[in-house]
Design a protein around this nucleic acid. Structure first.
Length: 186
DNA sequence: AGCACGATCTGA
DNA sequence: CAGATCGTGCTA
């Protein structure tokens, strides 16, 4: 089931937790890749010093102030793209960064784990051309909610790579799937 | 117009 | 631990 817009129109911290176990789906050159979301991070409000929106609305961050359910993609360190999902009501800047996925290879039973936000976008051919893309459309890039999401053990930690964020750096807005018990169905 | 640095990753 | 590599926001 493709996540509807109201799924995204909620508190970014809540959406970050609920995105775990969901499927990030990428259609590229006619091929569809389905990846389970394993790690996320929330960035919420201008008061969050770790968020790009802490500098206010600019050309880059405008998308975070927009309609929920759109992709916020930016380049970092001159070579990596970060994939974020815009959350919360229009005019409130918030997004969820996807930091880790697991790909269920079609046919084989092997699962490829991809940790790291820069690596997963490279693997899925996600770049700035998809910035602003509407994930609720179910085209090119979208998110599907699993049928059953039982017994997910989720761990909370401080967010990665934001030492500059003063008191905000200790907020435990990073979420990871620790164990999966049982199979999650698409 | 110039500058410092980043929600990262890789290889030594 | 340094290097890659460039868009962005800040200062002037």
């Amino acid at each position: 089931m493709i996540a509807r817009r109201d799924f995204y129109n909620r508190n970014a911290v809540q959406v970050a937790k609920e995105l775990l176990g969901c499927f990030l789906v990428r259609e590229y050159k006619g091929k569809i890749t389905r990846a389970m979301i394993m790690e996320t991070e929330a960035y919420r409000g201008e008061y969050d010093l770790a968020s790009h929106a802490s500098k206010g609305k600019t050309a880059r961050t405008e998308i975070m102030y927009g309609v929920p359910g759109h992709a916020y993609i930016y380049m970092i360190y001159g070579m990596y793209f970060m994939l974020n999902v815009v959350t919360e009501e229009k005019d409130f800047p918030a997004a969820v960064l996807v930091r880790g996925i697991k790909i269920l290879e079609p046919g084989s039973r092997s699962k490829v784990k991809i940790g790291g936000p820069g690596k997963l976008t490279r693997h899925l051919h996600i770049n700035k051309a998809l910035n602003g893309h509407d994930l609720a459309m179910g085209r090119k890039l979208w998110i599907e909610r699993p049928r059953n999401k039982k017994r997910l053990k989720i761990s909370k930690s401080p967010r990665v790579g934001i030492d500059y964020a003063r008191h905000c750096k200790e907020w435990k807005w990073n979420f990871k799937i620790e164990h999966e018990t049982g199979e999650i169905l698409a």
